[in-house]
Design a protein around this nucleic acid. Structure first.
Lengths: 338, 338
DNA sequence: TTGAAAGCGTTACCAT
DNA sequence: ATGGTAACGCTTTCAA
């Protein structure tokens, strides 16, 4: 394809096609009127030379790169173990494909923020979707300062009012979960909460506590995990050791619920007979637990679709537009654990 | 930071600092002689304006983007469930950071090859590392045609001779695993193999078979999985149903070994007393199984370090340089399952 | 419909 | 050490 190691330029294409650079450009981008003859000649030359437009040159004039970043300010361990991210990225990739945008995944490790910011300031991407981040990261402020179109999936702790946010009602959903347990007659209801420094972790804990308090039940049976299966097992053991009479558990992720169920099984505690469980996410694991898990469906696809819509809108408007906020409500999926 | 929505340019920095664009550029990039006074003035202006160089403009002249792609031609389900990728990316990120390169992750879905190629041809990245790919993808040929510096981690099926490859000796390691079982006195040795259309899957099966054949043992006890835990469980059940007298299993991934152990436990078959097991990977899971898993350590860090070294070398040489091939040998890690 | 030419924002060469 | 200026490869006026 490539003639001799050096990528071909529009100039060469034009020359080979016997037209000007301008016409060649028009033929390639196909927005403008070009005679059928010129069109064919150019396309032919493109094929012969294996030509592809130089991205830098094109971006320089169009102010567009045709790519969008997904930023994950998260340890790669979690990124690559939590089904949440797999589902989210899958969904993002699909949405972007429809709009002919290239997905660029940026793993934002704690220490590496400077290079990330430099990259974004360098306008290597047209916009960014930020997902799941911790209490202390100031990405929202930075992106807002930067003027780079962005959308946050899940509200950031800091600077949430300055950026568009697509969120789900974590507290409301957790409350629904707690209500399932309370209405099911459970009285010693514990929770395996997510990390305290993450919105989802925090809000789900709050929602659970509210319902328990309102029902006059003890809301002190709390153990913390990090959304992983293993942490669910540990947390469950902790809870059981502290209070042997627990009869209901709300786990802030299905993975933690699964871990908890393993611990319960190890102790020969029956689910849901002895202990009822409600999880959170419904990304596949919940259907496959034994017995199948009652859970709240995290509306990831909806959030992503909306996020991409908002982002492209913002990109098209050149980054202007007021920071909007859209919230989706997780749906209760009743199966057999509660 | 940004004055008014529009990113500032070098021109503005220069004007504010009272120097020429040339000097401003030199001060910012810091390779060339600049008076301390000018240096300070420029840096100050940069800070005041929140200036960052426009990537496109810079790339256009330097022919460098400062970023490197990691291409994963793999379903996102596997990318986000197999610890192999987590470890690899972690390692890549570390190596690139040392060299001040930005990691750009490109998920190459089957249908999406065209856009990926367009992106690469557009020179949005300086080079690419390709990891784990299937029999039918022609990425190696394409990248070789393209002239983009690249390194493959794991040999591709097609075009392996045309690109630099960093690999591990899958067949040799699998042979070592089989030998552990044979030498341990096992006579009915099965394998849970990886996907037939992946090099790692194929080669590990070959290595295992070679040793069994050489020992005069039946090498037909094969079930296929896809490296996931779940597939390991299924495959193990399959094997057990087909041959009840199995006394040794080589699983082509620790995850599949774990799945197999769950099935064995469900059937009250003891490990290693009744059935010995050897896994593959040693990325954390192996230490935590019950009992701890004997396995082969996939030399991911070594492969990645070498891959990044080769890649940056190739980038510095402008993509020239003969396609090299480096192979690392996995180490046997003996624990308690065999 | 087409072509010439003016940028886009940098870096790098060449004088000074 | 510094400034003017020519690239880099493309898109997009503006005339023709």
């Amino acid at each position: 394809m490539v003639v001799n190691g050096h990528a071909s330029t529009l100039d060469e294409v034009a020359r080979l096609a016997g037209v000007s650079k301008a016409t060649a450009s028009r033929a390639i981008n196909g927005r403008s009127k070009v005679s059928a003859k010129a069109q064919a000649a150019v396309l032919d030359a493109v094929r012969q030379l294996g030509y592809a437009p130089n991205g830098a040159a094109r971006s320089l004039v169009t102010q567009r790169t045709g790519s969008v970043a997904v930023i994950l300010p998260e340890s790669d361990e979690r990124v690559f173990s939590d089904p949440f991210f797999a589902r989210m990225l899958h969904s993002v990739a699909r949405s972007l494909r429809e709009r002919n945008l290239q997905l660029v995944l940026l793993l934002a490790q704690p220490g590496d923020e400077d290079r990330l910011l430099l990259y974004l300031r360098g306008r290597y991407v047209d916009g960014a979707i930020v997902a799941s981040h911790h209490r202390d990261d100031r990405l929202a402020e930075h992106l807002s300062d930067l003027g780079l179109p962005c959308v946050f999936i899940g509200a950031p702790w800091i600077g949430a009012e300055r950026v568009p946010v697509v969120d789900s009602d974590n507290a409301g959903a957790a409350a629904a979960a707690a209500r399932v347990l309370v209405d099911g007659g459970r009285r010693r209801i514990a929770t395996i909460a997510g990390p305290r420094d993450m919105r989802a972790g925090h809000d789900r804990l709050v929602g659970w506590r509210q319902v328990l308090d309102a029902a006059g039940l003890d809301s002190s049976l709390v153990a913390y995990g990090d959304f992983t299966e293993h942490s669910g097992t540990t947390a469950c053991a902790e809870l059981l050791d502290a209070a042997g009479d627990i009869d209901g558990i709300f786990a802030a992720s299905d993975l933690m619920a699964l871990g908890a169920m393993r611990e319960l099984e190890a102790r020969s505690i029956r689910v849901p007979d002895d202990v009822a469980i409600v999880g959170y996410d419904d990304l596949g694991v919940a259907e496959r637990t034994q017995p199948p898990l009652t859970t709240l469906r995290n509306p990831i696809d909806q959030m992503v679709t909306e996020a991409v819509r908002l982002l492209t809108e913002s990109i098209d408007q050149g980054g202007r537009g007021a920071p909007r906020r859209v919230v989706f409500v997780p749906e209760l999926v009743r199966r057999d654990t509660a």
